[in-house]
């Protein structure tokens, strides 16, 4: 769409008059905090950045189904089995809402999917940690979904219309996800010693990875500034992390359990929560593919995709046959 400026100079210098008009409209829409819609002119960088962000978000939902799907067949009561099944199914739904939003930017879903399967696309690193115990279903709901919601609620106002609308739907549905997770932990915390231990162990393992879900500290987050200027992102990584840690610090008391961060406290002077140092090297390792289960997660997606190929082909072939039949008739 936009002419590339190979010399790397001022981009506006090579915009055609139509494009300049488009850019002016785009800037005006952003300035008045209105919404960009799919057929509006938009800078290539905006299109690219949003496609990346929305599709990563979609991939995260889809890969994120796996740690929980892993426990559906073993859920310890039929009620919990039903809840978990509904939740994992919702995640597939959220993935679909988001792929739809990404597609409006011009990249079809099979291309996005190919990026995931080939390992080129990223997804939330939290899902590269294993879900070893039933209590992990609780910790994932409470901490992981909790962090996701804190991230996502502001995205409901993202400047790109389809993304914001998808997020509204996702956030409404997610509110049950976090609650069911908290209740799993509450039930365990009030149960037998073994159950309580299971719950504490899950919180210990998911606490730090959940805090890292907000991304690197503001100083090391190169994409954030542009994203805030485009009004896609509304709060910085650290601001969101602060809000979240403040909430869970209170909530954990209701559980009668602890966060694995004895020094966590609210500093009156700075008005900030002081939490422990997070291991950013670990995050980098996990993102680059070396988390405990990266390989397993991707392979599961590849398998499902490969094994479903003949089904997708059959359905497409049937549709084509029926379309021909209608034409003839």
């Amino acid at each position: 769409m936009a002419a590339q400026n190979e010399s790397g100079g001022n981009l506006s210098a090579v915009l055609s008059p139509e494009e300049q008009a488009g850019k002016d409209r785009f800037d005006a829409i952003i300035a008045e905090d209105s919404r960009i819609e799919p057929r509006d002119w938009m800078p290539e960088a905006y299109r690219k950045s949003l496609t990346r962000q929305i599709s990563q978000h979609a991939h995260s939902e889809i890969i994120g189904m796996q740690p929980e799907a892993n426990w559906i067949t073993r859920a310890p009561s039929l009620k919990r089995k039903a809840i978990l099944m509904a939740k994992v199914q919702d995640e597939a739904g959220h993935g679909l809402y988001l792929y739809s939003a990404a597609e409006t930017l011009g990249t079809p879903r099979d291309v996005l999917n190919e990026q995931l399967l080939s390992g080129r696309a990223k997804y939330s690193s939290i899902f590269n940690y294993p879900a070893r115990s039933w209590a992990d279903m609780g910790a994932i709901g409470w901490l992981v979904d909790g962090a996701a919601i804190a991230n996502q609620v502001p995205l409901c106002r993202a400047s790109y219309g389809p993304y914001g609308r998808a997020m509204v739907r996702v956030c409404k549905e997610e509110s049950f996800h976090q609650r069911q997770g908290f209740e799993i932990l509450l039930e365990l915390a009030q149960g037998t010693e073994a159950q309580k231990k299971m719950a504490q162990d899950a919180i210990n393992r998911f606490y730090a990875p959940a805090l890292m879900m907000f991304g690197p500290p503001d100083g090391d987050s190169p994409n954030s500034k542009q994203s805030m200027e485009w009004r896609v992102k509304r709060f910085s990584n650290d601001e969101l992390r602060q809000r979240f840690v403040g909430m869970i610090a209170e909530q954990v008391k209701v559980l009668g359990l602890t966060l694995p961060d004895p020094g966590l406290h609210f500093d009156e002077e700075s008005g900030k929560w002081i939490h422990k140092e997070l291991d950013w090297e670990e995050l980098t390792e996990v993102i680059s593919g070396n988390g405990p289960v990266n390989s397993q997660r991707l392979e599961r997606r590849r398998e499902a995709h490969a094994e479903g190929a003949w089904v997708r082909e059959a359905a497409a072939a049937y549709a084509a046959k029926m379309a021909r039949k209608t034409e003839v008739a």
Binding site: M65, A82, Q89, L96
Partner: peptide
């Protein structure tokens, strides 16, 4: 049926089979 969730031939079908599994689980309960 529940083991199809996250393994279907297409995401839409994960959801369809998930719905059916949930219905059956509801009847069972």
């Amino acid at each position: 049926l529940s083991t199809w969730i996250s393994r279907g031939p297409e995401l839409e079908e994960d959801i369809a089979l998930g719905n059916i599994a949930l219905d059956q689980l509801g009847h069972a309960r």
